[in-house]
């Protein structure tokens, strides 16, 4: 039997790129400093040396044009992985993303496709401030035609990147920078994780926490503390928010009768509202308490070391919410 390996998030995604680029010559990597420099977060190291400048392409700081070109390359037969260094800069690509990439298949009645991955980093916790900390996945998930992936751990990150590259539709892949050094055991061969399937992170009877990205780790921390008091928490990680694995989420809530949805992006019109509404629609009669939402405050992310941690939920806020929910 093959042995599993301890691997961190960054290396798992990098290995996924190596595997898919070796398997398919049409896979190319496009972005700023992804080539000889190996990525500003060391996330593309070694790819340039193996695949050369025709497949690992350093662009100028020119996101709208470069991303639009990645779409044209995808339409004409390539499978580009386009890297946006900070998720905040995705706003520069929004026209190409929303008006072109998301709609090409539909507008062509299925004759054209855009097999493209937009890979980007996000997240608070490094004091990077209002223009380098945002996660715009809810914006993206409001656009039919896109798929949106938010891995919470190394194994899912590697497996979902492999699935995203093989997908025939545009996939947005959000990586929380503070997860880059988090490791887990990964089965040999880096198994592909299908897009659109949630994962039950922890089984429990009393309450379901549905947590997005790095919030999964905070939920686990809260669940460990609550277990000492005999509170049995189930945690569901959707892994992809579009398509959303409604069956797994609703199935869990029907078992525990309580739901708390946790997200690290601003609460208004965000992912927590969508998931909470889905639970209300499909599991209302099973609920013993209103669905609770915990998310980031509706404010920009400040730089200050004392203010920044107040923006988003953490293990304490989740623990308090669970205690309120079961009271």
């Amino acid at each position: 039997m093959d042995e599993s390996r301890l691997m961190n998030f960054r290396d798992a995604v990098l290995e996924a790129l190596f595997l898919e680029m070796r398997a398919d010559p049409n896979v190319i990597l496009v972005g700023e400093d992804v080539g000889a420099a190996g990525g500003v977060f060391k996330q593309t190291q070694g790819l340039f040396d193996e695949f050369g400048d025709r497949r690992v392409i350093d662009t100028p700081i020119s996101e709208p044009g470069a991303f639009g070109m990645a779409i044209g390359a995808a339409m004409s037969g390539m499978r580009p992985v386009f890297e946006v260094m900070f998720g905040d800069f995705m706003t520069l690509c929004m026209d190409q993303l929303v008006n072109q990439a998301a709609k090409v298949r539909y507008m062509s009645n299925g004759a054209a496709r855009v097999p493209l991955v937009l890979r980007t980093t996000m997240g608070t916790g490094a004091n990077l401030g209002p223009q380098h900390s945002q996660g715009f996945y809810a914006w993206a998930a409001h656009t039919p035609g896109l798929k949106v992936v938010i891995p919470s751990n190394a194994a899912d990150a590697g497996g979902l990147m492999r699935a995203a590259i093989r997908d025939d539709d545009p996939v947005l892949f959000f990586e929380d920078r503070l997860l880059y050094n988090s490791s887990c055991e990964i089965a040999s061969g880096l198994p592909i994780v299908p897009i659109g399937s949630a994962r039950i992170v922890r089984e429990g009877r009393d309450v379901t926490i549905i947590a997005i990205g790095r919030m999964v780790a905070f939920a686990q921390e809260a669940a460990d503390r609550l277990a000492k008091d005999g509170v049995d928490v189930e945690i569901v990680d959707p892994r992809t928010i579009l398509p959303l694995d409604e069956a797994t989420i609703v199935g869990s809530v029907k078992k525990t009768h309580r739901a708390i949805v946790v997200d690290g992006a601003p609460r208004a019109y965000g992912v927590t509202g969508e998931i909470a509404a889905t639970i209300m629609e499909q599991a209302f009669d099973w609920l013993d308490a209103p669905v609770m939402r915990i998310a980031a405050v509706n404010a920009p992310v400040p730089v200050s070391r004392s203010l920044e941690p107040l923006v988003r939920p953490d293990a304490n806020t989740i623990e308090n919410a669970v205690r309120a929910a079961i009271a």
């Binding site: 496009v30 044009g65 991303f67 639009g68 070109m69 044209g72 390359a73 339409m75 004409s76 390539m78």
Partner: peptide
């Protein structure tokens, strides 16, 4: 414009 330029990048 970028779609055509992108097809050229693919070529």
């Amino acid at each position: 414009i970028p779609l055509a330029a992108g097809a050229a990048l693919a070529a």
